[in-house]
């Protein structure tokens, strides 16, 4: 549905986006990650046709956003950053206006407005003007606008920004449910959101894509991924470390904490984490450790994110711990 090819945008001498390419099909939810100023919003603005790309092309359902903007824009629902809306309108007035601009009229329009009001929990504020609303309601009003015509493509720039935890959960559930039938791109700073919602994630840094994969694929790139952590009720951490270091599957073991003694063992190359866990549990049985915890690290997205987007060695040093 969404094809982005070699997208580039320069503002004067500054290159904001440099050669970004990806595709999103129906049924996919693509998470867009990156530090502030990485070019996420600029990319989304080019995809939605708000700003023209300096180079490259964007196709929405086969229509080029530059050459056939109206056809392409019909397919898109867009929630811009900071969720702007006309302050002097009521929620109902605003939603009716956007429905009308989307070409909905009569009974279809009324139905569409009712549907999004219910989906975004706006019943209570329907006749209130937008400027009197709290940030959460304002955000949901703009979100409602983006799905009013049940678009095939949904572009959401930080859809959960400024919402409380319950609302965040609602919006995530909504995105995941809609993602079954639509092609969705959304940007976020919250990494757990990516794991909860996305079928694929892209990390963008200084205008280029630095990682692209499913959340679990990305997590594997973490230095922790595959390591096994044990926590033991009695005994010193140093003794446990000594025993684990003795295993030939283990490359090195690191003490994480004392009382209770916590040690993390990193596997040698080509050693499966299951084999490692089994070997460690054998040791635990033999040594009669009172095992409080034994688990395999999946790796963490925030570490991957930091190691990819922080260029200096600080991040990699921290990670090696």
């Amino acid at each position: 549905m969404i094809q982005v090819r070699n997208l580039k945008k320069t503002f004067g001498p500054k290159v904001a986006v440099n050669g970004v390419s990806f595709t999103v099909e129906k049924g996919e939810v693509l998470g867009f990650l990156g530090p502030n100023g990485a070019g996420k919003s600029t990319t989304m603005r080019m995809i939605t046709g708000f700003i023209p790309p300096t180079e490259g092309e964007v196709k929405i359902g086969g229509h080029s956003i530059v050459d056939q903007p109206i056809e392409a824009k019909r397919l898109i629902g867009y929630l811009p950053e900071n969720a702007p809306s006309y302050a002097d309108m009521t929620v109902l007035g605003f939603l009716t206006f956007t429905a009308e601009l989307r070409g909905l009229s009569g009974a279809g329009q009324k139905k569409a407005v009712e549907r999004v009001v219910e989906m975004c929990f706006l019943e209570n504020v329907l006749h209130q003007s937008v400027e009197t609303l709290s940030k959460g309601y304002r955000h949901r009003t703009c979100f409602a606008q983006s799905i009013i015509h049940d678009p095939e493509v949904l572009i959401l720039d930080e859809p959960t920004d400024g919402l409380d935890p319950n609302q965040k959960h609602e919006v995530r559930t909504l995105i995941r449910r809609m993602g079954e039938k639509k092609a969705i791109i959304f940007s976020t700073h919250i990494l757990e959101e990516v794991e909860a919602v996305c079928s694929r994630a892209i990390i963008i840094d200084r205008g280029t894509i630095v990682a692209n994969g499913t959340p679990s694929e990305l997590k594997q790139r973490s230095a922790h991924a595959g390591a096994v952590t044990v926590r033991i009720g009695e005994g010193s951490a140093a003794a446990v470390k000594g025993k684990l270091d003795g295993l030939n599957l283990v490359e090195r073991a690191v003490v994480i904490g004392e009382s209770p003694a916590t040690v993390r063992a990193f596997p040698r190359k080509q050693v499966g984490s299951e084999d490692l866990a089994r070997a460690i549990s054998d040791v635990a049985l033999k040594e009669r450790w009172s095992l409080l915890e034994l688990h395999t690290e999946e790796g963490r997205l925030d570490e991957v994110f930091r190691s990819i987007t922080l260029p200096d060695t600080k991040a990699s040093k921290e990670e090696a711990k």
Binding site: T48, I70, R74, P80, L101, R102, Q145
Partner: peptide
Amino acid sequence: ELLLTMPV
């Protein structure tokens, strides 16, 4: 941004 990304 909203207005100009509508089909108008």
